[in-house]
């Protein structure tokens, strides 16, 4: 019998040695989440992957009037040693907690720090202006770096359409947030939100009993919470 719920299949092996942080912080305060990025291990037939974390995500949140500002640094080893540095401002949104208003992404590889891709975006009246492109979005807008906070205080069932700007680079309309569902992990009860849609394999945002976004599972990649602190 599979005792690991579907949401956590990708990190079933790694969960054996996982210890959650001791701290608890309200996510509508000034705070910082630090995740380790794990890849689904030992599934590659040529043994090209292993159990080591392949990066980190640090998301700092600062309260602003009617919203928040986020400072994000993600470092991960893919085809290159990639570094994402981003700033995002959000406004409160009654549908999914917060909706993105502006962002700046500065992406580069550690080996070539002088070669950078800059992506700026602004949202005005249901139109996203991203670099020189205009995209229509009549739903709230979020991304994987913001949703852990936006969903933290969501207690009622939701089935909400939204737009994601994946990695603040790839705009995808037609997304759906569903949940929370209750799942059991090692005798503890967790709440899981599911994100599906165009170009999205099911992503799960899993909150522990202290309402901390402790696991975020993509497909072959997952984030596990390593630290949570007030700033």
């Amino acid at each position: 019998m599979n005792i690991i719920p579907a949401e956590l299949n990708a990190i079933a092996g790694q969960l054996q040695n996982y210890d959650a942080p001791n701290q608890t912080v309200q996510l509508d305060s000034n705070c910082k989440l630090t995740y380790e990025i794990l890849q689904w291990a030992k599934t590659h037939p040529d043994g090209l992957t292993d159990d080591r974390p392949i990066g980190t995500v640090e998301i700092s949140r600062y309260n602003k009037e009617n919203g928040a500002e986020y400072q994000i640094v993600e470092k991960r080893n893919g085809g290159g040693r990639e570094i994402y540095e981003a700033t995002v401002t959000t406004a409160r949104d009654e549908r999914i907690g917060e909706s993105i208003q502006n962002w700046k992404l500065d992406w580069y590889q550690a080996e070539t720090p002088d070669k950078r891709l800059l992506i700026n975006g602004t949202v005005r009246e249901a139109t996203i202006e991203m670099n020189k492109k205009h995209l229509s979005a009549d739903t709230p807008i979020s991304c994987q770096w913001i949703l852990p906070f936006a969903l933290a205080n969501q207690t009622t069932q939701m089935d909400e359409a939204f737009t994601t700007i994946d990695e603040l680079t790839y705009c995808k309309t037609g997304q759906l947030l569903h949940g929370p569902e209750q799942i059991e992990v090692r005798g503890q009860s967790f709440l899981s939100f599911r994100h599906t849609g165009y170009g999205t394999l099911p992503i799960h945002y899993v909150f522990d009993p202290q309402r901390r976004p402790i696991f975020i599972t993509f497909t072959l990649l997952s984030w596990t919470l390593r630290d949570i602190e007030r700033i």
Binding site: Q109, R116, L221
Partner: peptide
Amino acid sequence: VIYDRHPYGELQDSGAARAAAQYIAE
């Protein structure tokens, strides 16, 4: 080579496309 391969598309493709975009713009 402006971006190396990785055995997982989930870890490679967004970077490969971004590196291509960066090259084109530059």
